[in-house]
Nucleic acid binder design. Structure first.
Lengths: 336, 336
DNA sequence: TAGGGGGGTTAAAACGTTTTTATCCCCCTA
DNA sequence: TAGGGGGATAAAAACGTTTTAACCCCCCTA
């Protein structure tokens, strides 16, 4: 069980084999049009034959720009991150950049990777990042796009779903269906979207003269199981049902649906339920879930666009996406 | 719009600020216990104050081993890759390695990244990789784990779900429920799992004296919509319904469910349906879908384990995971 | 024939680390 | 007092690139 030493092919090997200097090889590979066509062709042939692949550490060490964009996530599982990552990837390629994805929930580790890899820019979707890390990135002038918080300056952009307006839309939609009493299932504590959705929802209801009692604000943590439990506890308490439930995201709404079904409550006949995000599963469960599409594929493309703008020297911006209500079977007009 | 030059803090800056040489700084940072405690403390303080972060390109250029494992995927979206990636990440951390994820469907680009980043090992889940790339990796002695194909040698391991046995399990389960006539929804063409699942399913049925007619083998391509369309076309043809449908994966099974529902066929009363993989959605739809759990979280951990074994000089292995039937509401015993 | 010019190639420096080897200085001992 | 030893620090080489500046030849022109 010995760690084998595997000699990798370097530019030096190619040079020796082709009988030229390493600068000549470099020129041949990088298409600097200064070489004799025959020399160039010979070198390329040798490189191909030896399966030469440039050591990117060497290249990036020398280069002032690496051509790499880094995406920093806390985790990938779930219905959200995969789509987002794929769309970010496409946008990077279209923009002429490479993408590298780093998973981590340790803030200083994340910063070490951003700085250490000398990425040209970073896209961050990670609630673990704190003030101190933001400050370091700013002070070192790394172009950064945040997707789950708002922070805008010369080198920082934010691309966020307008969650407050989402909450307002939900309230408006449910009010127009004639509902009068409501329940809200909260998202994760301290989460930007969670806070804003609640704010928008509550303010819109207030404008319509409606307040929500504390007992009708339940914990959901953006999770299905957590929401299921909260609603089940509520049903056990015997309090009167609300006309409608707005959950901070779709997973949560699906948990609500299950809890109501298991509790013998008919949706949408007795209670209307709606979520937010429009993940695929909302279409597959029955009843299908009314929700707000947040276009998170688009968020990826916009994030990359912002990042490339900043890499090119332009200042950061705040980009906001509005949602759109997708009516499905879990909501129905209240018959009076 | 000028590309700004951002001078990054290097070890040299720290050395100058602390009034020592760069070797001393390096020693301080890497905990080589040879420095005077005061010097060390002073240097660490300066490094912290300047937000110094080592340039990994420099470090990796020098090092013979980078401590990095690379995960190479064609895409992340969907219910599968996210979970897998997360579990690979955890296993890497536990094993003392960093993980970097690269998205790409261009085979030579993938090889360029594996070799170019000098990762200590690679995990590949990408059907785009071909013989030529496998050969290059082998010839350069890069420890590699394949998750969607079988290739085993000194530096290559494979960690795959035993799809053939999965197909057999499905057949056995449905036969025991008393079903006599079957439909199979195929996965993606040329895909390892698709081929094996079919083989296992068909062979087990054959042993029971049952053959499936060509008209009852439908295209599904592992996709929900594609499967929906195929089944809908089948219903339109007016041919007699089978007792049970086995779909090559869960997404496909869900598409079948929808098509049957929309075609007025009751599941499981008229037709039993089962899938494979046990993605979360199978629990959420109604009826919930009977399926075979493939433990793809475990696959990640096993892949990393194999990789680390090979990095330490041991030869590759074939690791096979057996599935387990998860009975749910979409299957029922045939009443005779 | 001397000088200039230019096409083709190479030498050398630089990027930021780590690591091996050298240096320095002080104290101890003979 | 000379020499040795050892603790602390520094110098220098090396990793694999890219790039700038230099070089070498040959041909052309004056």
């Amino acid at each position: 069980m010995s760690k084998e030493v595997n000699k990798k092919i370097t530019i030096k090997d190619v040079a020796k084999e082709a009988g030229v200097s390493i600068s000549t090889v470099s020129n041949a590979l990088n298409n600097v049009n200064v070489l004799h066509p025959d020399t160039k062709e010979r070198i390329l042939e040798v490189a191909r034959r030896l399966n030469y692949t440039p050591n990117l550490n060497g290249r990036n060490l020398k280069a002032q720009a690496t051509g790499v964009i880094g995406l920093f996530l806390g985790a990938i599982r779930g219905p959200y991150y995969g789509e987002l990552s794929d769309s970010i990837y496409s946008a990077c390629i279209d923009g002429g950049y490479e993408l590298e994805i780093f998973l981590s929930s340790d803030p200083s580790h994340i910063v070490a990777n951003i700085l250490g890899h000398r990425v040209d820019g970073a896209i961050i979707l990670n609630s673990a990042i704190g003030k101190r890390q933001e400050e370091i990135l700013r002070s070192q002038g790394i172009p950064t796009v945040y997707i789950d918080r708002i922070l805008v300056d010369d080198k920082s952009s934010s691309v966020v779903f307008d969650s407050k307006s989402g909450g307002e839309q939900a309230a408006k939609f449910l009010l127009e269906l004639g509902h009068k009493s409501f329940m809200y299932i909260e998202g994760e504590d301290d989460n930007y979207d969670s806070i804003e959705r609640r704010k928008g929802f509550f303010e819109a209801l207030k404008r319509a003269g409606i307040e929500i009692d504390k007992d009708y604000i339940l914990k959901g943590a953006f999770e299905r199981q957590r929401s299921y439990n909260s609603v089940t506890d509520f049903l056990d308490s015997g309090k009167p049902l609300p006309d409608a439930v707005f959950a901070a995201n779709d997973l949560s709404a699906i948990g609500v649906l299950e809890a109501l079904r298991d509790g013998g409550v008919k949706v949408p006949e007795q209670v209307s339920v709606m979520g937010c995000d429009d993940i695929e599963t909302t279409r597959l469960v029955s009843p299908s879930v009314t929700t707000i599409r947040t276009f998170f594929e688009k968020q990826g493309a916009l994030a990359v666009e912002q990042l490339i703008r900043m890499i090119n020297g332009e200042p950061g911006e705040l980009v906001t996406l509005k949602g759109r209500i997708i009516p499905r079977d879990s909501t129905i007009a209240k018959d009076l």
